[in-house]
Nucleic acid binder design. Structure first.
Length: 934
DNA sequence: CCTGTCACG
DNA sequence: GACGTACGTGACAGGG
């Protein structure tokens, strides 16, 4: 490029420090094999740079780019204010030596790398942004740091690489409530606890934006501070004027730092393959070296194996890159036989089915994919049809060139059912359910989704796309590309076979690679037992339950739906009458405007979107004074029951079985609980009489009864055991009413004189403890003043000091290890525990709750896993799980026997792995529908 | 597609 | 000292 930076040019400025810290926290503490040098952050940093480069090759690619770093810890801001950034935690020991390596990495990628003694990276970014903007070019700052938002505008934008989101003027407005040019004013007032910028005490971003928008600028505001109505605010602004002005100088970026280079020096350069690969090889990044060698089409350098005795499992696998063009299509019996022979020789195979539907009850098999060696995979098309036939007739013919379905399944069945051949899949419950329709019972299995869940619950989700991107740095072909979306979407049997081969075989290849990756990690992380005893064996149990389904009576639902509709129409008329106009009662926006603007009710609070809050808690408060909100609450309840239950549930009745088949998501909840979807049968109403009647539609087949068994107070019992609270343990052993007992202890009321109100409060506190109690939360729940709630909590901890030490030690453990554990060794990772600000509170409470909720989840899983064997001789089926409840369908006459048997399994489910100091009690019920049984 | 709301343990 | 707060989920309707 001969011209100087100017119009038509596009400068990217990467916030290097942000990259480093994100890389450091995202990756485990990797070390260089040969000498143990910590290189986790460098590895992540390189991967991010590589990702950045490959993501920025299009027509909008930058013409100029630089990575900007901080240098030293002392800047001109410390001269103004010695405490600036003084409460920053020290850099972790294993990160420090990696900092210079990230500079080297940047240079190795042949990207300009800039820093300046005495200035922060933000100042350099500011200076370059202004220069580029003044020259008429565009700028994108790759960072999500709010301190940089003051630079946005006039061709300068930010890009949050984490959220994959551009931040423009509107984004800044959203964050600060003012435009970029006034951001420093707001920051000066609000201060920043992270950087230790003092600001104006008692004023946050919200208030600051309000003030600035009213007075125009910070200076005008300070000059006219006398006019402010709120006395406290006025005094603060007058008294702390110096401090506020100092804060502004601290947050104001320096747009004129003395740089010894120009924009033209930042022109994008081609990579220098030798230099880059030499660096990567020196770091001993095997996978990345390989990948980049291929991308640059050069011979990869040899990275010598570590001299130390290394087992093969420690070295990064030497796999070929994932290449969807290289997969095989299997169209004849010879080829099929070759694959079968190979599978038998290996003893394992990665396996995946392609079908016509996500609903396994209706999914027809379209094809099968297999892989036994990374990079080698095949697709066996079986039922593909012509995707281009426009005529309605004749297009349903199976295309030529495919093996016959029945013969192929007959050939594969011995493999799939061979106890000596391991079948590896991603979400095997799906494939198991599909194959069950074809009379194939696939076993034994491994499931990469469940391996990932055992390893990494709490860190990320466990879908194939996530895992492939995270562990193989490869983005799989999106299924959307084959099927399309929305109304025009096609089913997999209409996908051209050549396309299907690439997509489907790639999934098997990825699954096999993930399996190799996770297999050793399970041992190293000590979660093999969790995976083998709590995750893997649950797959066939859930598959069986889901396939059974539960009978739901359409007539009952339909009748209720009509009744609800009538009641709602009546309420709606009343509401419109009260409002004096017609409006959509179902629209929170319109309702808020009616209540607070038109009717002028006091106390309307707007949320972050600017809409009035109209939640049940708000309406309940208003309902004591006003008629309309009370009617809306009634209407909302009916609306919910009708739309979510009486109407939607009917659509889930399977036409073939007449039953409803939910899907349990085994990896859905970080704690180990299951989630239920399509439909969710874990949130069928029970708390109100009207809602409870929905359960009357859940019925047994004629000649059968529904039996419900549920654990009584399981989480409190686990807490009593884990925190080792003698008084609670004794109360449970003696079979006392635990809430009444808590109340008696706390309020010095004898058990005989217990009032329902006192017991209710104690119950709320007991639940609060499980949730990581806070004065605010308890106050809101009990609708009492915060001071009173805090007094209850203090009293509770005084009486049960063991609970407090349990909570403290759990949080300490989470901070030290980054995870917490259930009594059965399940790990729940808590990456946010080190966070600052309000997120810390969330993480703290989640860490306290997770071992309790998770242990209860483990216990019922153990019961479920044991159940099929124990009830195999009884005329009954296990149908549903609702966290602490199991629902069975039992032939008439066998009820008592089943209750006795299943109850014992549930009560003893923790044994023999674990002795719990408290008895686990299970209550039983039975009836002609779920309402009666529960 | 996101937000608010509300159903469950 | 302010901030925003009970834990874990999924589905539906409204509104851009």
């Amino acid at each position: 490029m001969s011209t100087h930076f100017g119009k038509g040019h596009h400068l990217h400025l990467i916030d290097g420090s942000a990259f480093i810290f994100r890389a450091y926290h995202a990756l485990p503490p990797l070390t260089r094999k040969s000498d143990g040098l910590p290189i986790g952050a460098v590895s992540g940093f390189c991967n991010m740079l590589q990702r950045y480069i490959s993501d920025n090759t299009g027509p909008d690619a930058p013409t100029h780019v630089a990575v900007i770093f901080d240098k030293g810890s002392h800047t001109f801001r410390n001269d103004m204010f010695p405490e600036y950034k003084a409460n920053r935690e020290a850099m972790p020991e294993d990160l420090r030596p990696q900092i210079p390596l990230t500079r080297q990495a940047t240079e190795a990628f042949n990207i300009a790398c800039k820093e300046l003694e005495g200035f922060e990276a933000d100042d350099i970014i500011a200076t370059l942004s202004v220069q580029a903007r003044d020259a008429g070019g565009r700028v994108t700052i790759i960072s999500s740091d709010k301190d940089l938002m003051q630079l946005v505008g006039g061709g300068v934008e930010m890009f949050d690489a984490m959220k994959n989101r551009r931040i423009d003027r509107d984004g800044v407005m959203e964050k600060f409530g003012v435009g970029p040019e006034r951001v420093v004013d707001v920051q000066a007032l609000a201060g920043d606890s992270v950087d230790n910028v003092p600001g104006a005490p008692g004023i946050g971003v919200k208030t600051a934006a309000l003030l600035i928008n009213e007075y125009g600028t910070l200076e005008d505001l300070l000059d006219r501070a006398e006019e402010i109505k709120q006395p406290k605010r006025r005094e603060t602004l007058i008294e702390k004027r110096d401090q506020i002005e100092l804060s502004k100088r601290l947050v104001q970026l320096d747009c004129a730092t003395p740089l010894d280079f120009t924009l033209d020096d930042l022109e994008v350069r081609d990579p220098d393959a030798d230099r880059l690969l030499a660096f990567l090889a020196e770091m001993e990044f095997r996978t990345l070296t390989k990948r980049i060698s291929q991308a640059l089409d050069v011979e990869p350098p040899v990275i010598p194996d570590a001299p130390a005795p290394s087992t093969s499992e420690d070295t990064a696998p030497e796999w070929p890159a994932i290449d969807s063009e290289k997969y095989e299509r299997v169209s004849d019996t010879n080829a099929l036989q070759r694959w079968i022979d190979q599978i038998i020789t290996r003893g394992y195979v990665a396996f995946d089915t392609e079908t016509t539907s996500l609903n396994e009850m209706q999914a027809n098999l379209v094809g099968i994919c297999l892989s036994v060696v990374p990079g080698e995979a095949c697709y066996i098309p079986l039922q593909h049809k012509d995707g281009n036939a426009d005529d309605l007739f004749g297009s349903d013919a199976i295309l030529d060139g495919q093996l016959p379905l029945e013969d192929t399944l007959a050939a594969l069945k011995p493999i799939l059912e061979d106890p000596a051949i391991l079948k590896i899949g991603q979400n095997m419950k799906y494939d198991a359910k599909v194959l069950a329709r074809y009379n194939i019972s696939i076993h034994p299995i491994d499931d990469t989704m469940l391996m990932s869940y055992a390893l990494n619950s709490g860190i990320h989700n466990h879908g194939m796309d996530t895992l492939s991107e995270r562990y193989l740095t490869h983005t799989p072909i999106p299924i959307k590309e084959l099927l399309g979306t929305g109304k025009s979407a096609i089913t997999f049997d209409r996908v051209p076979i050549d396309e299907a081969v690439k997509y489907a075989a790639e999934d098997a290849d990825i699954t096999l690679r993930l399996w190799h990756t996770f297999k050793h990690q399970l041992h190293k992380s000590h979660v093999t037992t969790v995976y083998e005893r709590l995750e893997r064996p649950l797959v066939p149990v859930l598959a069986q339950m889901e396939r059974h389904g539960i009978k739901v009576d359409r007539e009952t639902l339909s009748r209720m739906s009509n009744a609800f509709a009538q009641k709602m129409a009546g309420l709606e008329a009343e509401i419109h009458e009260l409002a004096g106009e017609r409006f959509n009662v179902g629209s929170p926006k319109q309702l808020g405007e009616i209540l607070f603007d038109k009717m002028g009710i006091e106390g309307g609070k707007k949320g972050k979107t600017g809409a009035y809050a109209t939640g049940a808690d708000v309406l309940e408060d208003l309902a004591t004074e006003h008629e309309l909100p009370a009617r809306v609450l009634d209407w909302r309840q009916l609306s919910k029951l009708k739309s979510t239950y009486t109407d939607a549930l009917q659509d889930h009745i399977d036409p073939d079985t007449g039953r409803v088949h939910t899907s349990y998501v085994q990896t859905g909840a970080s704690t180990g609980r299951l989630a239920s979807t399509d439909p969710n049968l874990q949130n069928i109403p029970v708390r109100t009489e009207e809602g409870r009647r929905i359960r009357e539609a859940f019925v047994p087949e004629p000649g059968n009864t529904l039996v419900s068994l549920d654990y009584s107070q399981i989480e409190l019992r686990i807490l009593a055991h884990m925190a080792d609270i003698e008084a609670l343990k004794k109360a449970f052993s003696d079979g006392l009413d635990i809430h009444a007992m808590t109340a008696s202890e706390m309020f010095d009321v004898p058990m005989e004189d217990m009032t329902p109100e006192v017991r209710r409060r104690a119950k709320a506190i007991n639940f609060g403890v499980i949730y990581g109690i806070s004065g605010f939360g308890l106050a809101r729940n009990l609708r009492i003043p915060r001071s009173e709630a805090q007094a209850f909590i203090d009293r509770y901890f005084e009486r049960f000091p063991g609970i407090r030490s349990y909570m403290d030690s759990t949080v300490e453990f989470a901070k030290a290890h980054g995870y917490v554990q259930t009594l059965f060794g399940r790990k729940i990772h808590t990456p946010e525990i080190a966070a600052k600000g309000p997120r810390a509170g969330f993480a703290r409470r989640a860490a306290i709750n997770a071992p309790i909720q998770g242990t209860a989840a483990d216990i019922i899983r153990r019961a479920m896993i044991r159940m099929p064997e124990v009830i195999s001789n009884l005329p009954c089926k296990m149908l549903l799980q609702v966290h602490d409840e199991l629902l069975f369908e039992v032939e008439n006459g066998a009820e008592e026997h089943v209750i006795e048997t299943a109850k014992e399994v549930m009560q003893d489910a923790a044994k023999p792995a674990l002795h719990i100091d408290v008895p686990l009690v299970v209550d039983a019920g039975q009836g002609a529908n779920w309402a009666e049984a529960h």
